[in-house]
Amino acid sequence: MSKNIPLWEVFIRPRNGLAHKHCGSLHAADEVMALQAARDTYTRRGEGQSIWVVPSAAISASDPDQAAENFDPSIDKVYRHPTFYEIPDEVGHM
């Protein structure tokens, strides 16, 4: 029985101080090979100082069909933004 080679999501940190950012995915048999492949695939031009690989199957994503019910409720909560509050000009920046 042939087994599919698992898919991995690759996250690269361009330099210390920045967060790891998703940059793509690749297939590899285990995490050691995934890291090597990620290094070869995604950091050939000095793009990274650090790599994370995560099994794609381990990622749970929100359902795009539910985007409206997930994210629309935040749109009408304008009081979460600083500009909702009236501060006289003479107070200056706050």
Binding site: R80, P82, Y85, E86, I87, P88, V91, M94
Partner: peptide, 13 residues
């Protein structure tokens, strides 16, 4: 945090 201070100031104002 920036809205926190402004909402407080607005209450006092």
């Amino acid at each position: 945090e920036s809205f926190h201070q402004r909402q407080g100031y607005e209450i006092l104002l």
